[in-house]
Design a protein around this nucleic acid. Sequence first.
DNA 1: AGTGTATCCTGCAGGC
DNA 2: TGCCTGCAGGATACAC
Length: 278
Amino acid sequence: MPELPEAETIVRGLRPAITGRRIERVEVPKPDVLREGRRSFSAKVRGRTIGSVERRAKNVLIVLDRGRRIAVNLGMTGQLLPFPRPPRGRRRPTHPAVRFRFDDGSLLVFNDTRRFGTVECLDPEEWSEREARFGPEPLDPAYAPSQLAAALGTSRAPIRSWLLDQRRIAGIGNIYAAEALFLSGIHPERPARSIDLEEATRLHGSIRMVLEDAIDEGGTTIRDYRNAIGGEGGYARLLFVYGRQGRPCRRCGAPIERLVISNRSAFFCPTCQPPRRP
DNA sequence: AGTGTATCCTGCAGGC
DNA sequence: TGCCTGCAGGATACAC
């Protein structure tokens, strides 16, 4: 589910709702989303105050005092839903996995139907170790086209798989990989190393454009994604290829095709994204 | 080393 | 209506 734009949207919505709150109590109805026992997790976060809310890759980071942080990976269906006190007629979460209760009576629920998501509490050293495993942030102003071109290097992996690898570039998932490849006219099965500097430069620009536009739209809601106030994102109506197999390409009219790469659907336009460069 | 596959889990859509 | 299959925005342990 949530990729960089969805995580970013959640972070922006969460920030004003929970910053400065003190965690009074933790309830864990679905302990399998934790990577440790619920008792030790609770002990680490109880009594701590939330200093800020940040994002790295697709992760939402709730930064506590002393540099400790709660790292939330939303998986496919994870949602972070803050509830004010009183919870003004909001629908109750369907699959609450973790509940944080704050000193002012408000509440933050990690809701996750499929429970592919994780909630962890990391010390500063644990986080920097984790952090180092992620590739560059594509929206970092310092991330240059030449850096992408160089990183594609000698990899024989299909470019679609390459883009999904969080160690190579952070935050891209199946939707935005498909859209960025469409916008840059690159077939998803092209080996990463076959992409030349000119194409890499186009891809770099497309990745940024897609992610920025999606953030502006508050993310893409296919089914489960919701922002921090339970609302849907607006980017689904702007998709060119993702989930549109059989429907006409918005640019050339040819039917969008679907193929499977590494067990996951890849969507592309056969004429706008030829398999090899002419 | 660097890829692809199978797996975790639930819900939904479509075919019969 | 109900049963079955396939599919889903992610990440990772494993086999080759």
